[in-house]
Design a binder for these strands. Structure first.
Length: 571
DNA sequence: GCCGTTTTCGGCCCGACTGTTTTCAGTCG
């Protein structure tokens, strides 16, 4: 029995209560209890008395204890008997909440997708009070779309959509300021929809322009302060625009950046101090005076909080942080240590990549093409690698504004061997080891492969440690505790691969890595120069894990990095 | 269902929009 199971059980109770149309506060009490348990650092065994946790009272405590003891609870069992299981997925349909669904069940006998569809089609739903023609249309459409789309979309899918929308908003003259908000601004790995906050004195006109945008395929709703549209692509995604007066921009942005838990904590804190927060400002409860702000920094400072960047506004715990260490920021980045060129499967030459790195203000960078094992990527053999090495030396002699480190992204072979011998690796400035093959091996075998790389004094960094592609594949099985421990002990750098498909290692494990003293590099793994821009996404992901500037080796000077790498080799 | 030196009852974060109503409940973020 572990904590996750208990959390799931409490959440299941909440969902069933919702379907019963129970009191909303009762439902949220169960959800709060689940969250409280999740947020507690301790494992289930380490918690003496769950009742002592804030948010868990007598009732929930009894349920938790019953569940731990017997693996089930009377509460959920009777709920399951009362409420048909098939109703649960129907809660996801826009516009159907617990109350309405509960009525559909009780009055029409709707118990699952099929019966709901039938009740819509034969006119029963439309004839119910509170429902009408439009409700039926919406439900039917949702039922048709439901199977087409995953619940949440990978961040790599939505970033380009966000950027196109931004380019249109930038051209609208009546918009004073705008920003992405919501979970994309917090850089969740997957998101449900997009939220934009738009400051304007002409909301009607701007709303008219927004619904005319070329990517908009459907207008879901259009009011004086909010417009919701659908954007079709491989998957459909809904996009909200909040149109607000410029004075309210910052408080609205904060509000809709969330997370929900963050907002709840902020409001609680504000209330303690005698204020009331809404998207329109912070109101003094006594006098009714409303404060607005020009930056989010001001807003946080007003409540005596340090500036909390969007990425860390997740669990609500961040609100009680007393002081925040200096987190890594895009401006701190001095290099990119993982990229490819036309020598293997990249699209640009060494010169072109270097040119771009100079434009970004980097002081140094590493060229790390694939090694010979990766034939599909035109991996370099020893001869070509040393040729490239020579070319890079020549480049460095001609240029003073940037130094290129000669590197390689060397495969860790399926049998655990490294693709190059030590006498070759010795001649390089920066050696990356990574796995691109045999993902389906056992965890034991995968760990053997990773350990070989970690133990080699010539391997400086492990790239994309789990091999995952967000929303597409899970990656190979890694014992991350073990991996991180050994990386920290051997001073092997752990990569945060900034490619939005990867974000590997993930922020939550990076946080563990930092605690254990491991060093991190944020790299783009660029295969063309546009991809060098992914650095900003990588930095966001790192901040989400509260990664400090000093933990990230590519914020260091080149001399500091070279010294660190030498030490590792025992020189 | 949880919580509390403004408390053991009556709040619980707050506001907008839709679709259905004739003033608002339900849903959503």
């Amino acid at each position: 029995m572990d904590k996750k199971q208990v959390i799931k059980h409490l959440e299941a109770i909440a969902t069933y209560l919702e379907l019963k149309g129970e009191n909303a506060f009762k439902i949220s009490a169960y959800r709060k209890a689940a969250q409280a348990l999740e947020r507690d650092d301790r494992s289930l065994n380490e918690i003496d008395d769950v009742g002592s946790i804030n948010g868990i009272g007598k009732g929930t405590k009894a349920i938790i204890e019953e569940f731990i003891e017997t693996g089930e609870t009377e509460t959920l069992n009777s709920l399951v008997e009362e409420v048909p299981k098939g109703l649960i997925p129907l809660l996801k349909i826009q516009g159907l909440g617990g109350k309405k669904l509960s009525r559909l069940y009780q009055e029409l006998g709707v118990i699952d997708e099929a019966t709901l569809r039938k009740a819509c089609e034969n006119g029963e739903v439309e004839s119910m009070s509170g429902f009408g023609k439009k409700s039926v249309e919406k439900i039917l459409k949702a039922l048709d779309d439901a199977s087409l789309r995953p619940d949440r979309l990978p961040v790599s899918y939505v970033i380009p959509i966000k950027e196109v929308i931004e380019s249109h908003l930038r051209m609208m003259r009546e918009i004073e300021d705008f920003s992405i908000a919501g979970s994309l601004r917090r850089l969740k790995e997957t998101v449900k929809d997009l939220d934009f906050i738009v400051a304007t004195d002409h909301p009607e006109s701007v709303a008219d322009q927004i619904v005319q945008l070329p990517m908009v395929t459907e207008v879901v709703s259009k009011g004086s302060t909010k417009v919701t549209v659908m954007v079709e692509g491989e998957w459909n995604i809904s996009v909200d625009f909040r149109l607000i007066e410029p004075d309210h921009f910052v408080t609205t942005l904060h509000h809709f950046t969330g997370s929900k838990e963050h907002n709840v904590e902020m409001r609680r804190l504000a209330k303690e101090k005698g204020y009331k927060i809404s998207e329109y400002g912070i109101e003094e409860s006594e006098s009714g005076q409303i404060h607005t702000f020009t930056t989010e920094e001001e807003l946080f400072n007003f409540l005596d909080l340090p500036y909390l960047p969007p990425e860390i506004r997740e669990t609500g715990e961040e609100v009680s942080i007393e002081s925040l260490p200096e987190l890594v920021d895009l401006q701190h980045i001095r290099s990119d240590l993982h990229m490819h060129t036309t020598w293997s499967d990249g699209a640009q030459s060494i010169d072109e990549m270097a040119e771009k790195a100079i434009q970004k203000g980097y002081e140094y960078m590493a060229i790390t093409d694939h090694s010979k094992f990766l034939r599909v990527a035109n991996g370099l053999n020893e001869k070509r690698l040393l040729e490239q090495n020579k070319k890079i030396k020549e480049w460095n002699e001609k240029h003073s504004e940037l130094t290129i480190l000669s590197g390689i992204e060397m495969d860790i072979l399926p049998d655990g061997q490294l693709d190059f011998d030590e006498d070759v690796l010795k001649q390089l400035d920066f050696v990356i080891a990574s796995i691109h093959s045999s993902f389906n091996q056992s965890e034991e075998k995968i760990m053997e492969r990773l350990m070989t790389a970690l133990e080699s004094p010539y391997v400086d960094m492990i790239a994309h440690p789990t091999g995952r592609l967000i929303g597409k594949r899970d990656g190979y099985p890694v014992n991350l505790e073990l991996f991180i421990d050994r990386a920290a002990e051997t001073n092997t750098i752990i990569e945060l691969n900034a490619n939005p498909n990867r974000l590997d290692l993930s922020w939550n494990w990076l946080q563990v890595a930092q605690e254990k003293g491991a060093k991190v590099a944020i790299n783009t793994d660029a295969h063309n120069f546009k991809m060098l821009d992914d650095m900003k996404v990588g930095v966001q992901a790192a901040r989400k894990g509260l990664i400090k500037r000093e933990t990230v080796v590519n914020t260091w000077s080149m001399n500091d990095l070279v010294r660190f790498l030498k030490q590792k080799k025992g020189d």
